[in-house]
Simulated assay, not measured.
Amino acid sequence: MAITKNRNVNPFDLTVQLWPRNIYLGIGCRRGTTLESIETLVLPKLKELGIDLRTIVGVASVDLKKDEAGLLNFASKYNWEISFFTAEELQNAAGEFSSSDF
């Protein structure tokens, strides 16, 4: 049995894969970004990283984006929960993150 987030892990001739749902996508976007534009960027990156869509719990973004149709529709299309956080909450979050010019 293999418990993994990577769809390419098959260490045995017969491998049972369990897909833990424990990944949140942090997504920022410009105003008016479409669902299709988000998919065009996010889905190939997930594939490149070997992250199966079944492991994703939801999407997170800054609260300024809570009315962005493209972002809301993206989460809805994949039946993922969506959470919004204040800029202060995001700045105080532990971890290493890439920055935005915004």
Rank of each mutant, 00 (worst) to 15 (best):
F97P: 05
A60T: 15
W19Y: 15
L43Y: 10
G26A: 11
S37D: 10
I3K: 13
K47F: 02
N6F: 15
S61W: 02
W80H: 01
F102Y: 15
L43V: 09
K45I: 06
N8T: 12
G95R: 07
T55M: 09
V42K: 04
L46N: 02
L64A: 14
T15K: 05
T33L: 01
V57Y: 05
E68L: 06
E68W: 05
K47N: 00
C29N: 15
L25C: 02
F74I: 07
R7P: 00
T40H: 06
D52C: 07
L71C: 04
L14P: 00
S98C: 06
L35M: 14
S100T: 15
G32H: 01
A93D: 12
I23E: 01
S76I: 00
I51Q: 04
Q17W: 00
S98Y: 07
Y24V: 12
F12I: 11
L43F: 10
A87M: 13
F12W: 06
R21L: 01
G28A: 10
K77C: 10
I51H: 05
G28D: 01
T86P: 03
V59E: 00
L90W: 02
F97V: 13
L53S: 14
S98E: 05
K5M: 09
G95M: 06
P11T: 02
I56P: 00
N73L: 05
V62D: 02
L71A: 08
I38H: 01
T33N: 08
N79W: 06
I51W: 02
S98A: 13
T15M: 04
T86H: 03
D13H: 10
T34I: 04
N73I: 01
G32E: 08
S83Y: 13
Y24D: 06
G95F: 10
S61A: 04
T55E: 01
G70K: 04
L14H: 15
L64R: 08
D101Y: 13
P20L: 03
P11F: 08
L90F: 08
F97I: 12
W80F: 15
E68A: 09
R7M: 13
E96H: 04
N73H: 08
K5P: 06
I23W: 11
A69G: 00
G50S: 05
K47I: 09
Y24F: 14
G95E: 04
A69S: 14
E89A: 15
A69L: 11
L18Y: 14
L18C: 12
L64D: 07
T55G: 08
C29D: 03
E68P: 04
T40E: 11
L18E: 14
K5Y: 14
L43G: 11
E48F: 05
I56H: 00
F85W: 04
K47P: 02
C29A: 15
K5G: 05
A93F: 11
T33P: 00
L18W: 13
K65N: 11
G95K: 11
D101S: 15
T33M: 00
K65W: 01
L90Q: 09
E81T: 08
T4P: 11
V16A: 10
R31S: 15
K45S: 08
M1R: 03
R54T: 08
Q91K: 15
A87S: 12
F85R: 07
T55Y: 02
L14S: 14
V57K: 04
N79F: 06
G95P: 00
I82F: 11
S100P: 06
L90Y: 07
G95Q: 07
L46S: 08
I82P: 01
